[in-house]
Design a protein around this nucleic acid. Sequence first.
DNA 1: AAAGAGCACATTGCATGCATTTTGCGCGAT
DNA 2: ATCGCGCAAAATGCATGCAATGTGCTCTTT
Lengths: 245, 245
Amino acid sequence: MPASPITTVNSNTQTERLVLTLRARILKGEFSAGERLTELGLVSLLRASRTPIRIALERLANEGLLDPIPTGGFRVRSFSTIDICDAIEIRGVLEGTAARFAAERLERVEELGRVKRLLPRVILENPISPESFAQFLDLNRTFHREVWCLAKSPSLFRELEHACKIPFAAPEALVFSPADYEVSTAHVAAEQHRAIVEAIENREGSRAEALAREHSRIARRNLEAVFRSNKEGASRLPGAALVTH
Amino acid sequence: MPASPITTVNSNTQTERLVLTLRARILKGEFSAGERLTELGLVSLLRASRTPIRIALERLANEGLLDPIPTGGFRVRSFSTIDICDAIEIRGVLEGTAARFAAERLERVEELGRVKRLLPRVILENPISPESFAQFLDLNRTFHREVWCLAKSPSLFRELEHACKIPFAAPEALVFSPADYEVSTAHVAAEQHRAIVEAIENREGSRAEALAREHSRIARRNLEAVFRSNKEGASRLPGAALVTH
DNA sequence: AAAGAGCACATTGCATGCATTTTGCGCGAT
DNA sequence: ATCGCGCAAAATGCATGCAATGTGCTCTTT
């Protein structure tokens, strides 16, 4: 629906493969934070020539995963926990705006059919099986993007996608592993989802905004909890290697 | 202060020159909205080889001025007035967040020295001379960026810069030409600036947010006014050629 | 031992050739 | 007249060579 962001452009091209591979490897922690990524070094590592590598580096820098070096080249960016908390809060602010837009721009309640159908499914049973957990994450992601679409604003969609590129900022990153996750939190989240949809349906824009914004706090709480307690487990999460406290 | 965005990276490099030139020419309307920009076509036009041109196109696409074509290449993006209104509103939401952060994170009132010194100068005398108008725009821009900095959030700064890349979305684009501009609006804006700083100083985060958000509405009103009335004059503004109603 | 200069190497910026894919046009068939 | 096919031209994707600049190390000097 929106002007598609540059990350999902083509397919089957070297550049695209490199962006995916590099992003995954960076988030996995294969490069230490602050490390310079040289084009030639990546040539041998990624089996590609310098040109597509250069483009991939450009794109990842635009995503915010790399920092351009003033004299040329890029280094792996590091994120403080404050950076990440801010990124989550910004995402919350933007999702709040999306929810408000959705409420303000709703024409027919039938437009809510798809989100509503998602609602009863976004709950988690105890004990958590890996499959149900994966499905939970996926449903969560689907729900949030559905709200993005209900906002009917390509501009906002675009900014949301940009803001979610930061590690841990995306809504589906709000939970980490079944082991760390409190099932009760899932119920709180589900209730918030329900309330958001209700507010949209009632055209209560301000309420929808406040709810969506508060909803993003779950991600922040989870983040803090994980980084406080379960350090070893958390360090295996994608992106965790880039976090410097 | 923040992780510098990719647009201000280097200097004296072909790529950098091309980004500036191309952006200016696109905003000036030298290419029609929707037109495909081919690398070879630009080679002769910009006197550069394909490699830096390709990079420049990538960057402009990330800014949102170009749309990637799924099968490769880029075309000049067009903006509906709704797109632009949304972009302004998003900027308002983000600046509201910046003002709130500034209020919440203020440590010593002395930090406000610089914005306060800006305040009494952001007024416009009648009649408007071109110089005083240019100075007015510059001061306005400085004020807004100072608030961005007071938010003490690199993540937010980054998103603000990104959001302001859209034509007419930036705060300094809120006014167009001395002829169109109502001097009274400048006084309203100045009062809003004053109130925002006051709210920050009093640590009234919510008020600061609401004020900054509302403040962005001036840009929107101006936009609507200009596009309704003074079509010919408006069409000479940078970016106006990309607006399709 | 510390600091500075100089040099060799590493790295990026740019240019350009080749191969593949896309695109647009013209022609023919229905 | 319209639709579809096929071909030619054009455009991008990729690879690689060259030049200029930056980087880091060593060696010298104080």
